[in-house]
Design a protein around this nucleic acid. Structure first.
Length: 426
RNA sequence: GUGGAUGUAGCUCAGCUGGUUAGAGCACCAGGUUGUGGCCCUGGGGGUCGGGGGUUCAAGUCCCCUCAUUCACCCCA
């Protein structure tokens, strides 16, 4: 295919069965969130560009990774690069600050960033996230962490590795920032090029440089600069999470890229993915809603990249397979087979029939690949108001009267523990 | 934005130092039974060797350019 007709760089066609794994993942995420009483919020996949500019002056995803366009009416729009800003906008615009507190919201959908694709990183990816508005209490932070961990556990990533840090508040962070800048400025010559830029742009990010690890070891620790409120806040979050039996550890070098965070930041990885990988992350952003000209409201949330999660679980997370019935037919009975299939679907039985008018042999070959049971419509049996039913689980074949058919089929499908000497491939 | 790797059938890949009509496995289709799947056997459809240019009697193979894909850094989900 010509290059200019191909899928855009960094996007993907999600083919079956992967597409069904996505669908199952979504159901699990939403169901788990409902277990905690979260509500689902849908926002547009594009917003006015200012919505994202408000929240991330110094972050790459709003600086030079934006998919922006001017529409025919001259409005500056951007495909959303992340969920939190859009939810904050919706929160203010819809007056949700007047809703009963706390307000617990989740979202699911595509996000867009124009960056160079690599393993598990796409220009369009799917994110599931939660935002909890209206509570400053450490319990809100722990609720968010617990929900996110439960979701990944539901898909098979047990014992997630939770790392947490506090980047302080408007009162104590400036002190730390100054101490950090002083420390690194004195060693400017020893820093890598990236860190010299970070020193100007976003000093906190000096801490998670992978090159200058020796320098940061003697750098000032955030913990020594926390005010009393910030200190007791993170301690309570960690205590609360631990008390439900979920390990959590402080990572003194953990700071996150988006600059709207206050106090809590966290990332969660998994042992199967290596020591410091991030499957998802989040934090607190108490000042965000105020920047949308609404009343200030404390908030905490997480965002989870679904492609990364599914890549991490691998084949351990198969899609659900409906036990399928295939209606095969003898020559001249193709129409009858489809009518039969439709009647079985009326009984909520997943059913297919041949649409190519192929030989019985070919029909059964296809049926054997995808179905649990095959029906054969036509011939002598049809004249006696019966059909042949073949069970691929054991190779047995029965002649069943039409009026008893739905009951018979449901009975066979219910019994999962058939002997399998026939070689089912389900 | 920086650096590395790779492009041969739908998929995974062979194709030695350039040498006849480019192959295999899997997948797909058909036949081996007048009305029966899997396993096995036989046959079949499918390829501008990513594209363009060059060297040569001869290029999938060598050279240049280009496009695409992929991995890492930056950043992030």
């Amino acid at each position: 295919m010509n290059a200019d007709l191909q899928r855009p760089k960094g996007t993907q066609d999600i083919l079956p069965p992967e597409s069904w794994r996505f669908d199952k993942m979504r159901r699990i995420a939403l169901d788990t969130a409902r277990l905690y009483g979260f509500e689902l919020l849908e926002t547009p996949i594009f917003e006015q560009t200012q919505v994202f500019m408000r929240v991330g002056e110094s972050t790459d995803i709003v600086q030079h990774e934006r998919y922006s366009f001017i529409d025919a009416g001259g409005v500056d729009l951007t495909l959303r690069p992340e969920g939190t800003a859009a939810v904050a906008r919706a929160y203010v615009q819809n007056g949700m600050y007047n809703w009963p507190k706390p307000l617990k919201l989740i979202y699911w959908g595509p996000m867009f960033r124009r960056e160079r694709p690599q393993a598990d990183r796409y220009r369009q990816h799917t994110q599931f996230g939660a935002e909890l508005y209206g509570s400053e209490d450490p319990g809100a932070d722990s609720e968010i962490i617990l929900l996110a961990c439960r979701v990944v556990e539901q898909v098979g990533l047990t014992n997630p590795d939770v790392r947490i840090n506090s980047i302080g508040c408007a009162i104590c962070r400036p002190n730390y920032r100054k101490a950090l800048v002083d420390y690194y400025s004195a060693r400017r010559d020893e820093l890598c090029q990236d860190c010299q830029n970070r020193l100007e742009k976003n000093p906190l990010r000096l801490l998670d440089c992978k090159v200058d690890v020796a320098i940061r070891q003697t750098a000032p620790d955030l913990a020594d600069y926390w005010c009393d409120d910030c200190k007791s806040h993170i301690e309570s979050v960690m205590a609360q999470v631990s008390q439900v039996g979920r390990p959590i550890r402080r990572d003194p070098y953990l700071v996150r890229g988006l600059d709207y965070y206050t106090r809590t930041v966290f990332e969660v990885g998994h042992p199967s993915q290596g020591p410091n990988t991030a499957l998802f992350g989040g934090g607190r952003y108490d000042g965000l809603s105020a920047s949308f000209e609404g009343p200030g409201a404390p908030a905490v949330g997480f965002g989870m990249g679904i492609e990364r999660i599914l890549s991490a679980v691998g084949d351990q997370f198969p899609p659900d397979e409906a036990p399928l019935i295939y209606v095969a037919h003898l020559p001249g009975f193709m129409g009858q087979a489809q009518i039969m299939a439709e009647q079985l679907r009326n009984q909520q039985l997943a059913t297919e029939s041949d649409l190519l008018d192929r030989s019985l042999k070919a029909q059964l070959r296809e049926a054997g690949k995808k179905a649990r049971l095959a029906l054969i419509v036509g011939g002598r049996e049809w004249e006696q108001k019966t059909v042949q039913v073949k069970d691929f689980a054991n190779g047995q074949q029965h002649i069943v009267e039409l009026e008893n058919l739905p009951l018979f089929l449901k009975d066979r499908l219910r019994d999962e523990s058939q002997d399998t000497n026939g070689g089912s491939n389900l």
